[in-house]
């Protein structure tokens, strides 16, 4: 199923809303415990990565923004049923803000770079670079200094603390890349 005509504004808005709901749903469902990693991980940041990789920079980042706005306004959408102004002001607020820019970067890289690669291998490699850059580097770039500023810890300690989530996040980057490339093959034209 592919859309050949330019998507209407309403269609874009619906995509944003549905992917925002998907990100939210991934945080509401009890987390999956994977054999390789002892801590249970929620798939919420996977949703953030997928929104960018599937919908491109604008629609993807707006989907993340909708989740941020709804949860800061009070809906308990974040993993563990968190929500409200305290989430933004608290030590982990930077990661939440980083979602917007993370999905923006992933979306831009997928739209203008990854999806234009000729071979499957190059798509896989560039896709991994995109999801790691946007979904990990960019999000941590907001999250780590935010924690440092809010708590008074130095940047190094804040960075070391965030490394506990790195294995899970790397795994999510791999999954997001594989899922996005698989779905783009059957759903062409999403990033046009």
């Amino acid at each position: 199923m592919s859309t050949t005509t330019a998507p209407s504004q309403t269609r874009n808005t619906v995509y944003v809303a549905v992917f925002a709901a998907m990100i939210a749903a991934m945080g509401l469902v009890p987390p999956i415990t994977l054999g390789v990693i002892p801590v249970p991980i929620t798939l919420q940041t996977l949703g953030v990565m997928l929104a960018g990789a599937m919908l491109g920079p604008w629609r993807g980042s707006l989907a993340s923004l909708v989740v941020i706005v709804l949860s800061v306004a009070g809906l308990p959408l974040l993993a563990g049923g968190r929500g409200g102004l305290g989430v933004l002001l608290g030590p982990t607020g930077g990661y939440l803000v980083g979602w917007f820019f993370g999905s923006l970067v992933i979306g831009a890289l997928f739209k203008y770079w990854v999806i234009r690669m000729q071979s499957k291998l190059l798509q896989l490699v560039s896709g991994l670079v995109a999801t790691i850059l946007g979904g990990i580097v960019v999000i941590y770039l907001f999250g780590v200094p935010w924690t440092a500023v809010v708590t008074g810890l130095d940047l190094k300690t804040s960075l070391v603390g965030s490394l506990a989530f790195l294995p899970g996040d790397l795994l999510k980057a791999v999954v997001a890349t594989l899922v996005a490339l698989t779905v783009h093959r059957s759903y062409r034209g999403l990033l046009k």
Binding site: M1, R11, Y15, V18, A21, L50, V175, Y187
Partner: peptide, 24 residues
């Protein structure tokens, strides 16, 4: 996670397409 996410994303896209068509 792959076996769960691929169908989830495809069904999300289908829901979005159907809703957009209904609105149009």
């Amino acid at each position: 996670p792959l076996a769960v996410s691929v169908p989830l994303v495809i069904r999300s896209l289908k829901i979005a397409d159907e809703t957009a068509e209904a609105l149009d």
